[in-house]
Write a protein that binds this DNA or RNA. Structure first.
Lengths: 232, 232
DNA sequence: CCGGATCCGTAACGATACTG
DNA sequence: CAGTATCGTTACGGATCCGG
């Protein structure tokens, strides 16, 4: 009857009571890209049951992680959006996602694994220096293997869209592949190196492209993201 | 029969495939304090089934998060210990644990919730500046409410023990309560303020006590732990 | 006593069907 | 589009048992 909890007065245990069940953190990951509808989530999270998604969304709303909102007039659709607690959780998830990158080797990649360019992008977007994006308004189209996603950087706000409808009004197109993104996320490769090696190709507005490289950290790694690193 | 995975080529999803199941991260938390025996874990993780613990330990060993080791002669007991991947995971868990602290309010604390001084200490220990502990060899006894734990800081290595057997050979005794630790972990209170307000009492070697305050961050908060904070 | 394995009832999840 | 209802399957929890 009652929800299963660990019954421990501990920050980690309490956090896991809230977001530790199956699918919950992946729902949060989806919302890190921006507000999403119920059917968007159902589509992105292949294998989740529709009733389980509804149940998880209710739990997350009760916990104050997200809230439900109706979009302004023309669309008027119902979307789920991260609140303050949800955005803080998003930041806390970056180290965990970077840790998990170690298990993203090509060998253990199953042939039927799904891939979306939005997935690495939402974590990389968390690493963008917001101070450098206050005066910007650019749209970056990322083509990672077969998947595309559009990252819109506007006045310090970042949204990521699945690239479907809109025409090619992106300022810069970034063409690369999954393995390169994994190598960069694992800290084995810098963005500059990847560009020099031709593993990333940039096309379009040169100024916008330069700003993109500038707003991202030179090298990504767990050690650089979480402070107070253990020396040894 | 095959293990349930998300089937997504994403760092977070892959990470959760490895450590996302029930109890797994709490096992890792226990090992953050130092090597532990099977029965120690069973005792600390109230409610876990004995077969589930064995299964989780096998999964974590297969994933390279921990390894099994037999202690040197006199004791000769079998212990589980974090490996490199496990220690990196430990660092990645700190932000998540600090996020979860927001749900540690006194109102929602159930009367039968268990508490162990080791739980907050393992995360706080991760925030200790290792550069400042290289030349140290001190033992700190933390009394948090009814629970005690001993933190041994030796040449940059930190181990945390349940305070049971050994006599009071601690260099410093720190007396405080659960609420104070939560307030500090949530960033609502600095350690200095807590000492001044009498919410933390320090007894023993004054030099060792001063070094303890010095090796800890002045204020703890998610924002200070994860870099590239979103400004707004 | 330590480190599990086995068994079984219950809770959680997954897939499909159905509804306002 | 945004869910609820139902039902078979898997995972978990508690107890018992077993070998070193």
């Amino acid at each position: 009857m009652t929800r299963r909890t660990y019954g421990q007065y501990c920050g980690l245990a309490r956090g896991l009571d809230v977001v530790g069940e199956r699918w919950t953190l992946l729902i949060v990951r989806e919302l890190m890209a921006g507000p999403r509808r119920y059917s968007d989530l159902l589509d992105a999270l292949d294998g989740i049951g529709t009733s389980l998604l509804a149940s998880r969304l209710r739990q997350l709303e009760d916990a104050g992680v997200l809230f439900k909102r109706r979009l302004p007039k023309p669309s008027a659709s119902l979307v789920y959006q991260l609140g303050d607690a949800g955005r803080e959780l998003a930041r806390a998830l970056v180290p965990l996602a970077l840790w998990g990158v170690r298990y993203q080797t090509n060998e253990e990649r199953q042939p039927d694994d799904t891939y979306r360019a939005e997935w690495p992008l939402v974590f990389i977007a968390q690493l963008i220096d917001r101070d450098k994006t206050q005066d910007l308004d650019y749209r970056y189209l990322f083509c990672i293997g077969d998947s595309q996603a559009l990252m819109q950087v506007r006045h310090g706000e970042i949204n990521i869209f699945e690239h479907t409808s809109d025409p090619d009004d992106a300022d810069v197109t970034i063409v690369t592949n999954e393995a390169t993104v994994v190598d960069i996320s694992a800290g084995r490769l810098t963005i500059t190196e990847a560009i020099q090696d031709g593993r990333i190709a940039l096309q379009g507005n040169d100024v916008a492209a330069a700003r993109l490289v500038d707003m991202l950290p030179e090298r990504i790694s767990l050690g650089s993201v979480v402070t107070s690193a253990i020396s040894e």
